[in-house]
């Protein structure tokens, strides 16, 4: 019985000890809980601070992004402008190249026209210009005879050499009208059915010294590789109208004066020759 009591006592002691340990454990837990609560409480304001910093950084990045976007658009606009300018320059370069080419043609034509006073040479140079610089295959150069008021051909290319080209009265037909008015005549492109017809040319250019028409250049056909007149052709026509006219006229006067001089010289030689001994 005593054994039973001591057993119960030891067991109760054990139970009490266990309870005591549990109490200590719970107290430790409570303390830990309190400590953690404290820490959590301490941590909360710090987290808010981090959020604020992050928000600030995001705001800054957003602003930077907006700034970069603006810069990108500015760079794109500048690129667009430069590209446009580039196109303009390329276009301008082509135009200047064309002008350069035109000026070279005009310079050479003018230089050659005034390089001689020989009538036949001048006519030959006019023909060369019409063939090589304008690109005509069939054409004629006509001069006005002031006595008969008719245009007569002094040189031609591509027309039937066996048949002399007809004379044209001033004021009659296309060529006669051009010689009367002094206004050039053009049909830029020959139609599909166009056949070479001396009296119906593709172009008729008056040879003028001031307002005085001395002749007409009639162009009836272009070279096979040339479809139509170009801008430089019209410039060349203007140049021919004036420069070819003066070159032809002055060379004609020069050869006439040369002939007269030879005749006069002949008379003078006769007059001044020592009398022949009979």
């Amino acid at each position: 019985m005593v054994e039973d009591h001591s057993d119960i006592f030891s067991k109760s002691q054990e139970f009490l000890q266990m309870l005591s340990k549990q109490k200590d454990f719970i107290q430790d837990l409570l303390k830990e809980n309190e400590r953690l609560r404290y820490e959590v409480a301490a941590l909360r304001p710090r987290s808010g601070e981090t959020d604020g910093l992050l928000r600030q950084e995001i705001e800054l990045l957003k602003k930077r992004l907006e700034q970069l976007d603006l810069e990108k658009r500015e760079v794109e606009a500048a690129y667009q402008r430069v590209e446009e300018e580039n196109k303009d320059f390329a276009q301008r370069y082509v135009e200047i190249e064309d002008q350069n080419n035109n000026l070279a043609n005009l310079y050479v034509a003018s230089y050659q026209l005034h390089s001689t006073l020989d009538f036949q040479e001048v006519v030959h140079i006019v023909m060369e210009i019409i063939i090589n610089l304008i690109g005509a295959e069939v054409f004629a150069i006509m001069l006005l005879d002031e006595k008969t008021n008719e245009l007569g051909t002094i040189a031609q290319e591509g027309h039937d050499a066996a048949k002399p080209l007809p004379t044209v009265r001033i004021g009659e037909g296309i060529l006669g009208t051009v010689s009367k008015t002094g206004e050039p005549y053009y049909i830029n492109q020959a139609g599909a059915g166009y056949a070479v017809d001396f009296l119906h040319p593709l172009a008729a250019i008056p040879l003028k010294i001031k307002e005085n028409v001395i002749g007409v250049i009639s162009i009836n056909k272009l070279l096979v590789q040339k479809d139509a007149f170009t801008a430089v052709d019209y410039e060349l026509f203007s140049l021919l109208a004036a420069h070819a006219a003066t070159a032809i006229f002055s060379s004609k006067l020069y050869s006439q004066s040369e002939r007269r001089l030879t005749t006069i010289q002949g008379f003078l030689d006769l007059l001044t020759a020592p009398p022949q001994k009979g």
Binding site: A104, N105, Y107, V108, A109, Y111, Q112, S115, I125, E128, I129, N132, L133
Partner: peptide, 13 residues
């Protein structure tokens, strides 16, 4: 053979 063309070509060259 054409002096006009000789001059024009030389001018370009």
């Amino acid at each position: 053979d054409s002096p006009t063309m000789r001059q024009l070509i030389s001018f370009s060259l």
